[in-house]
Design a protein around this nucleic acid. Structure first.
Lengths: 123, 123
DNA sequence: TGCGAAACTGGCCGGGTGGGCAGGAAAAAC
DNA sequence: GTTTTTCCTGCCCACCCGGCCAGTTTCGCA
């Protein structure tokens, strides 16, 4: 059930910067074949622009920590991560500990959630 | 550092349906003050339209399972979840077990990752 | 009335997890 | 050459987690 070419494309906006949202709404309102979504309406597509200030500083993670983090997000245990990276379980636990500190997390689940929220990893 | 009103707005597209992407690109290409991003270019905003077929059926989770899942995503331990919901740790583990089955996950970290991917929860 | 689904509780146990403590090796920066 | 950073390894231990068993109540539906 793909969008019929005779249908209007309905766009919703998720833009943090009000000025940018206004400009876009202004520009897009004049385009034939396009329409901005009414509040609560199901849209064909969404225009997203997140305020970069809400992502203050990318946390400084080492390459190895990123490796471990990625595997954690896949649900891998320390043992599986160790095998995958060719290092010992002790080393994995060391990196996990560092990640918990840097991400201000209480456990590996929290760490993955925090990392995903901050855009450090993609789910 | 808000977008200057004299700047063009640069849009990138993340659209699963190629036909829809084409139509949008066509329509937006004619709008003065707008420009589509070159590959790899930093965009002002992104137009997103995910194929609903990639989210086949919202998994049937009970209310209690959703409660537990939400707290899991916050990094809460079974004990903390039990206290929060006013139930025993055993019951929490029961619901967690059901969640692991339904979400096809190997552990709680995997469960919240899967749930987030499928849109069951918002991080 | 019976029957299943959902929610809840308990005990048990092997293995995973996280914290602490101590150390070594290599590369880059000073 | 010394220091810093990153990465790596070891041991110990309390606690948590997930899976197994079994059981209760409550609710809606046939």
């Amino acid at each position: 059930m793909s969008a019929d070419t005779t249908d209007e494309i309905v766009l919703s906006l998720e833009i943090d910067d009000p000025a940018l949202a206004d400009r876009l709404a202004m520009l897009l309102g004049r385009v034939a074949g396009l329409r901005l979504a009414a509040p609560g309406e199901q849209a064909t597509a969404t225009i997203v622009a997140r305020d970069p200030r809400s992502r203050p500083a990318d946390i400084a993670l080492t390459q190895r920590e990123l490796d471990v983090l990625a595997l954690m997000a896949e649900g891998a245990s320390n043992k599986m991560i160790a095998r995958q990276l060719g290092i010992s379980v002790h080393t994995v636990k060391f990196h996990v500990g560092s990640l918990l500190d840097k991400l201000d997390a209480t456990g590996r689940t929290d760490a993955v959630a925090h990392a995903a929220r901050r855009g450090v990893i993609e789910l």
